[in-house]
Design a protein around this nucleic acid. Structure first.
Lengths: 157, 157
DNA sequence: TTCGCTGCAAACCATTTGCACCCAT
DNA sequence: ATGGGTGCAAATGGTTTGCAGCGAA
């Protein structure tokens, strides 16, 4: 099972992208990207910026936005908009299978799932409407076990 | 097949809501709501405001927003956020079956569909993750027959 | 007469952009 | 030394809100 680490593969794809587009590698970008890879899944520019500030107080929010946009352009991150007002970025390896999200409206937790049966049904729906399907978005909103049980959940701002 | 008109039923539910909440019926609200019901499906506050301006130039955008919010609170409209930056409101009768959307990325056309099989699969996914499902959102993005055929489509701003 | 309602403009807030200086290449 | 990168502050753009006057009950 020799499987190249998804992360190192992503880093290579990232520097390839920089090179091919005449962009430069900088300390800030490296920091942002490494932090982004560390906290895998569904982080917002603001949250990422806050985390970075803990150790590098001078990094600007604008740079975080700009870098995340590069990652998205390079095909290494996906912009996701749930219903909490702002954009979250999620790590997306080139060979990842498509997945969807189930979101807890109590505590904001996000889990991922994939279901090929649903995908197939979607293709069929698109065909029925004479659409060529390019992408789709499926989000299930509900209460996770913990939030359904008791408390209102510590709303993770 | 005696079936009370969905619209008159909605209007009744609307005035009930106003009464129960100590809110007043006004000319502006009536205009906004009637226009909203007329252009069924997926209209934004701005588009609605523009339409109303044609005949009633003094209506303010803020009032449109406020009224749409009332409709949403009354359970007569759903707020929908696709990927074009702003919120669209869609008519939603209390007895409507849930439906999802298929959106053309070429011309912005939106069609509705429902698929109970997909719904069932979603319930199953939620159960597997120990979530109590409350709501869900499924959007298929693609090209409609017209846009897939030739032109880039007259992007409906 | 009482409050809620309205239009306007200002405020919000996440995200973007202009700019002058900084730093990889 | 070039030209892209950065932080800051200002601009944006959809949506919300404060306020003084208006109008439904």
């Amino acid at each position: 099972m020799t499987k190249t680490s998804g992360q190192s593969m992503a880093l290579r794809k990232y520097s390839d992208y920089l090179a091919r587009h005449g962009l430069k590698s900088t300390v800030q970008r490296d920091l942002i990207i490494s932090e982004f890879f560390k906290s895998r899944g569904h982080i917002s520019a603001d949250e990422l910026h806050a985390k970075l500030r803990e150790t590098h107080s001078s990094i600007g929010l604008a740079t975080v936005y700009r870098t995340l946009k590069i990652l998205a352009d390079a095909g290494l991150a996906h912009e996701r908009r749930f219903n909490d007002g702002f954009t979250r970025y999620e790590y997306y390896a080139p060979d990842d299978t498509h997945h969807d999200h189930i979101v807890c409206v109590g505590c904001g937790a996000v889990e991922e799932f994939e279901n090929t049966e649903i995908e197939k049904l979607q293709e069929r729906v698109a065909a029925k409407h004479h659409f060529k399907m390019l992408d789709h978005k499926l989000e299930i909103y509900g209460l996770c076990a913990k939030c359904a049980a008791g408390d209102g959940g510590a709303q993770k701002k």
